[in-house]
């Protein structure tokens, strides 16, 4: 089976529409007939990442690749980068603004949630250039 690739541009200026890409991707995965628990985990990873890109990085690109035994989610932005990854990974640590908090985010759970919901989790970041988060979920 050939890999199926979904690519979405995430608008960094629209807090109200943040999450739409994840919503459409989740619908597409349901149509592919993947197990519900796998779809739920992909949804959480991609949605948290999408929200992060809107809050911190003025948007970016979300690419989801569905292979025969795994799903790879790559979230790439050209935002400010993460100066201290260990700190960013701590539950409760957040630099989100008030607008994000009024929507129920910015509690410092985003990156830890993404790590918890994926089987493999990797952050590549350069301060001043951007961040790429890559998550893999195995289809068992």
């Amino acid at each position: 089976m050939q890999d199926i690739v979904f690519r979405s541009e995430v608008d960094g200026n629209d807090y109200q529409r943040a999450g739409e890409a994840s919503r459409h991707t989740k619908s597409a995965l349901k149509r592919l007939g993947l197990p519900p628990e796998i779809i739920r985990r992909v949804g959480v990873c991609m949605y948290e990442g999408e929200i992060n890109m809107v809050i911190h990085a003025d948007g970016g690109t979300a690419t989801l690749t569905v292979g025969i035994d795994k799903i790879v989610i790559e979230l790439k932005d050209h935002g400010p980068g993460i100066p201290d990854i260990d700190l960013a990974m701590q539950e409760g640590w957040s630099t989100a603004n008030t607008e994000a908090q009024t929507l129920g985010f910015g509690a410092g759970m985003g990156l830890p949630n993404m790590k918890r919901s994926s089987d493999e989790f990797k952050i590549d970041t350069v301060v001043g250039e951007g961040t790429t988060v890559t998550m893999t979920i195995y289809i068992k």
Binding site: E48, M109, R116
Partner: peptide, 8 residues
């Protein structure tokens, strides 16, 4: 009321 807690 915390969306991230719901997701987690």
């Amino acid at each position: 009321d915390f969306m991230s807690d719901i997701l987690a």
